[in-house]
Design a protein around this nucleic acid. Structure first.
Lengths: 340, 340
DNA sequence: TTGTATGCGTTATCAC
DNA sequence: GTGATAACGCATACAA
C-alpha cells in the first residue's frame, strides 16, 4: 500500500503538491500534474481515508440502526438508504439490533468511535437512552419509520391514521360495511385503529369493538392466528383491513382452512405492499408505502444536514392504494355483473 | 468530542498513561487507573477509531458486496454476516452493486480507501477485474454464494449438483417419474441441471429434453412464465423441481390459472426455503439452504484470516429437504389411502 | 508554482 | 510507574 510520500518521491515533487492535485485544488502546472498523475497510476495510489478523516473530520460514512432487519420491510428501507447514500459518496455501516434493542447502545458506541458523519435510526420508538447518546454524538440523526415516534429529531414517516382511513374508506367504497381489522397491539393509542374508526364514523357505520383484533406482531403466523380469532369473534364481517402483507397472506391461509373464500366471502386489504402482496393467491389489494423512497429520503436528509450543518424538516410520505384481487364489490346490484 | 489529551489533562497524567489504561496494558498504579477512568467517564471520552486505525493498520471494518440485494436471499446471507461480524467486533459496510456490476469497481475502491480489514463478495461470479483488484488490496476476501464460482479465493457455498440430485431423488422416492425442472439459464453447464439428470439416470428414468426449461431469473414472474412454458412443453409431468422459492410460488399461480392443482396434479419442490416457502398455499416442500449460517461462516472466515494472516479453506454447506405440502405420493397403491 | 512544517488523535519506543 | 516524542498518512498555513 503506497502513501502520498511514495507518489511525491516518484514524481519528484513535494507531498503538498500531490495533495493539491489529488484534491484537485489549484496551484500547480499542467506539467507537474501529468507527472503526478502518472506516478499515482503507476503506484496504484489510493488516498488513505483514515488519515483524511482525521484531518477533515469527515468519514463519509453513516450508520444505520435497524431492529431485526430480517424482514422485507426493513430491506426495502435499507436499499433506499444505501442507494442514495452511495450516490452522495457516503458508505453505510449496518447495525442490526435485536428485538429488545439490547445491542443498540453498543452499536451507537461503535459508530461514535468510528466517527460516522450521521446516523439513521429505523424503528418504532426511540429510547430515551439512545436519544441522549446520539445527542452527545453531535452528528446528524434522522429517524425512519412508520410511526412519528419522536419530534425532537427530523424523521421520515407516513401518516398511519390517514393510511388506515384510506384503506377502510376503500372497503366502504366497495360496498362493505361490516369491516374487521387486525391492528397492532401497542401501549398507547393506535393511530391505525383511530383511522379505521374515523373512516367508519364518517360513513355512518357504527363501530363494533368485536371487529377489531390486536396482534402482537406483523408476521405470517400472526396473520393466521389473529384472522382466525377475528372471524370467530366477528363472523359476519365481509372485509378486513390487515396491517401487514405477511399477516394478510397468513389471513388468506387461515381463511382457506376455515373454508372462507377471499375475496368472495371476505375481502382483504393489506398494508405495505411488499413483494409478497403480488405473490399470493389472490393477489393482495394493499396500501402501498414508498419504502424505497423513504429510505432514500432519510439518506438525503442526513446528507443535507451534514452539508449545511442545520437540522432538516421531517417528511411525511404519501401512500396510495394498489388495487389487486383481494377486495371485491359487495353491492348486490353490482355483484351480478361483476362477480368476484 | 474529547481527545486523549483532554483526559490526560483532567487526570493529571500524560497521554501515554491514558493510552495504556484504555488499551489495558500494564504499567500504572491502581490509583492513577482510577483517576483516569474517572476522567474518561466524566468527559465521556471515546477513542478515535480513525487515529487508532492509522497506527494499528486495522479498522475493524469489513465490506460486503452484494448484487441487487433487494431479495430475501441476500438478506439472509447479510444477516448472518452482520451477526457474526459484530460478535467479532467487526463493523460491516454494505455495497449493493446493481445487476450489471457496474458500480462494483467503484465500491471496491471506496472499501480500499477506507482500508477495510476484509471483504466478502456475494454473487454468482467473480469478474477477473474484481479479482485483480481485491488481490492488490491485499486483504482477506471470501466469496459467498451458491456456486463454486472461483477457486483462487476461499469461499462458502453449497453443492448445487447434490442439491438438485436430492430434490429430484425426493420426487422419485415419492413415486414420480415424469419430472420437470425449471433451471437457470447459464452460459456454462448447469450444475443443477446435471444433478437433475444424474438423479434420473441413477433411477433408470430416461432424460427428456422437453421437461427442462431455462429461466432468465429467479423471481416470481419468471416462475409464472416458465412454469407455463414447461407445462405447455411437457404436459405429462407429475412433478417439478424449481430452483427458487419465489419461482415456485409463481409456478403455483401459473398452475392455478392453468387449472392445474398443486400438488394433486403436479408436485413441486423448490430451492432455498425462504420465508415465502412457508407462506404459500400449499406450503412448499423445499431444499433448505442454511443461508444465515453461510453468512456467519463467511464472516468467520474473514475474521480468521484477519487474525492469522493465512488463507482459509473453502466450505461447502449442507442442505436438507423440508417436507411440506407441495409434493405428494404418486404410486397408485399408496394414493388410495393417502390422497394428496 | 512549489516546498516546509505543523497538526489531526492515537500508539509505541524510548528514556527517566 | 510515568512521560516525552516519534511515527501513522494526510491537508494546509505559511514561506519561498
Amino acid at each position: 500500500m503506497h502513501t502520498i510520500k511514495d507518489v511525491a518521491k516518484k514524481a519528484n515533487v513535494s507531498i503538498a503538491t500531490v495533495s493539491r492535485i489529488v484534491n484537485n485544488q489549484s496551484g500547480y502546472s499542467e506539467e507537474t500534474k501529468r507527472k503526478v498523475l502518472a506516478a499515482i497510476k503507476e503506484l496504484n495510489y489510493q488516498p488513505n481515508a483514515l488519515a483524511r478523516g482525521l484531518i477533515n473530520k469527515r468519514t463519509h460514512t453513516i450508520g444505520v440502526l435497524l431492529p431485526h432487519f430480517i424482514n422485507a420491510f426493513g430491506m426495502e428501507l435499507l436499499h433506499g438508504i444505501e442507494e442514495k447514500a452511495h450516490e452522495e459518496g457516503l458508505s453505510v455501516i449496518i447495525c442490526s439490533t435485536d428485538s429488545f434493542g439490547a445491542k443498540t447502545m453498543k452499536y451507537l458506541q461503535v459508530l461514535n468511535e468510528k466517527r460516522v458523519d450521521g446516523v439513521i435510526i429505523i424503528g418504532p420508538k426511540l429510547e430515551e437512552e439512545y436519544y441522549d447518546y446520539v445527542k452527545r454524538m453531535a452528528v446528524p440523526v434522522v429517524l425512519l419509520g412508520t410511526e412519528k415516534f419522536d419530534n425532537r429529531l427530523p424523521s421520515v414517516q407516513v401518516d398511519n391514521r390517514a393510511i388506515a382511513y384510506s384503506a377502510v374508506k376503500h372497503l366502504i367504497d366497495k360496498g362493505h360495511e361490516r369491516i374487521g381489522m387486525i391492528a397492532f397491539h401497542e401501549n398507547g393509542p393506535s393511530l391505525r385503529a383511530d383511522g379505521y374508526r374515523k373512516a367508519l364514523e364518517d360513513n355512518d357505520i357504527i363501530f363494533n369493538q368485536e371487529r377489531i383484533v390486536f396482534s402482537s406482531g406483523f408476521a405470517f403466523e400472526d396473520g393466521v392466528h389473529f384472522f382466525r380469532k377475528l372471524m370467530l369473534q366477528a363472523p359476519d364481517i365481509t372485509a378486513a383491513y390487515i396491517i401487514s402483507d405477511e399477516m394478510a397472506v397468513g389471513a388468506i391461509t387461515a381463511a382457506d382452512r376455515l373454508g372462507i373464500k377471499v375475496p368472495h366471502d371476505v375481502s382483504i386489504i393489506s398494508h405495505d405492499n411488499l413483494r409478497v402482496a403480488d405473490m399470493s393467491i389472490p393477489k393482495l389489494t394493499a396500501v402501498s408505502l414508498p419504502l424505497r423512497r423513504m429510505g432514500r429520503t432519510a439518506a438525503e436528509k442526513v446528507f443535507q444536514m451534514i452539508q449545511t450543518g442545520r437540522p432538516s424538516e421531517s417528511s411525511i410520505m404519501q401512500h396510495e392504494i394498489v388495487e389487486r384481487d383481494s377486495v371485491c364489490m359487495l353491492a348486490k346490484a353490482v355483484r351480478a355483473k361483476q362477480p368476484c
